[in-house]
Simulated scan of single mutants.
Amino acid sequence: MALAESNPATKVRDVRERGWFERIPAGYWVVCIALLIMPAFASEFTLYQVFGWSFILGMISLSLMFLGGYGGMVSLVQMSVAGLAGYMVAIFGDSAITDISLGWPWYIAIPLALVVAIFFGTVVGSLAVRTEGIYTIMITLAVAAAFFYFTRQNYAVFNGFSGFNGVLPPNLFGVDWRQSIPFYYLTLFWAAVAYFAVLYISRAPFGLALQGVRDNPRRMAALGYNVNAHRIAAYAFAALIAGTGGILLTWQSAQISPGTAGIGPAIDILVIAVIGGMSRPIGPFIGAFIYVLLKTFAIDVLLSVGLSGERFQLLIGLGFLAIVFFSPDGLLGLWDRWQDYRKRDPLLDRGEDRL
């Protein structure tokens, strides 16, 4: 009986016979319930500024994680894609800059903004996939820099340095979505959609083929797969996620300007993804939550001890270096190491033979 219970094949069969509901770890349910009831005990500032901002940055970083983790492509243009979607929803929809904004209804402005963002991401992807390694990073960084300077100097379409303000979400179902609780649930919903979409795609035939392209592109090409087409499609899907996050980011601050999608924010998205971990979709949200906590409260802590608030970026940099040094896979890697350490057999550690 003991041998039957310890048989790995029997355990695998038992897991497969259980429904998907039973296979979800208990910790996931605890997190989901906590997020759903968060407005019952969290302040409006925490809901709107901390969690809302974390969900948005997590979505944009998730688009980078999808490209890097599953496709092996590090892109620094994801914040530019998000910024372009924010600009488009301001131009096609309503804003305080009535001379430029077209004032189209939300059901036209939002889809068009996402289409433009996807097109932009696809074009950038079609250029970036022709390179590898550091050259891909440099091309996407150059595009991000060009987008920043173009939006800052163009007044006819992007209103130059000032950008757009008064960009508000539509008043659907009689709800003001910029209020703390509605906005919290709005960002939570789309963050969950993006998370499960990436999780599903990673296990679908396209995602598996993309991971094969990441590991051995020559072998995948020999098997008949179009390597560049898979990579470009990955850029398009990542642009959809980043564009959605960019629209939510514009609604949160009610404005969009060149600084929103500058070089600094583009690097911040990379830092967030790396800190959380690039191996699983939950990593970017963990990194975003830590980043938002530091950016929200670290300055006050520094000022309280007599240091300049400008040293905040130094704290982010030191934390980034420490995490990368001890765990290239970010905080998820540290968690996996700790779990492996807990499961380690002390008898084997002492070199004793259990037989």
Rank of each mutant, 00 (worst) to 15 (best):
I137V: 15
G68W: 13
L36V: 15
Y70G: 01
A261D: 00
V271M: 15
K343D: 13
A144C: 02
V129H: 05
S6K: 10
S101R: 09
A9L: 12
G52N: 07
L303W: 01
I181T: 15
G333F: 05
Q255I: 00
G52P: 10
G58Y: 07
L249R: 08
F189T: 13
V115Y: 10
F325A: 12
A146N: 13
I108T: 08
A266Y: 00
P169Q: 07
I181P: 00
G174Y: 13
L302W: 12
A298F: 13
L186W: 11
Q49G: 07
I256A: 00
V15L: 12
Y107H: 11
G317P: 10
L248Q: 08
L347F: 14
G160K: 10
R342G: 01
G351H: 05
I108S: 02
M278D: 03
V292M: 10
Q313D: 12
A4H: 03
V31P: 05
G287S: 07
F45H: 14
G103I: 03
L331G: 08
A90L: 05
W106I: 04
F21L: 14
Y149K: 04
R354L: 12
D340M: 13
G246V: 04
A117Y: 03
D99I: 04
A233P: 00
Q255F: 02
V271H: 09
V227C: 07
E17F: 09
G19Y: 12
A238Q: 01
V167D: 11
G246D: 04
F55K: 08
L318E: 00
G19H: 09
L249W: 12
F120R: 07
D215C: 01
T244M: 10
S54V: 11
V123F: 15
I290R: 03
F119K: 01
R152F: 14
S43R: 03
I56M: 09
W338R: 04
I201T: 09
G306Q: 04
Y28L: 13
I290F: 11
Y155M: 14
G52D: 07
Q49D: 12
P111M: 07
A85D: 03
W29V: 05
L84K: 10
G246Q: 05
F55A: 11
G277P: 06
G93M: 10
T151Y: 10
Q211C: 04
G330V: 12
G330F: 14
A204K: 01
G246L: 06
D336E: 15
L315S: 03
A34C: 14
V167N: 12
W177C: 03
L36A: 15
A34H: 10
L293C: 14
Y135A: 15
L64P: 02
L47F: 07
F326I: 13
R219Q: 09
L172F: 11
F51C: 06
Y70F: 15
L334E: 00
G287I: 02
I275A: 00
G103T: 03
F92K: 07
A236L: 07
A145D: 09
P281C: 09
Y185L: 03
F51W: 15
S162A: 08
V12M: 13
F173V: 02
A144L: 01
S75V: 13
F92L: 14
F206R: 05
L141H: 06
M59D: 04
V115D: 08
R337E: 11
T244G: 11
F150Q: 02
F183K: 06
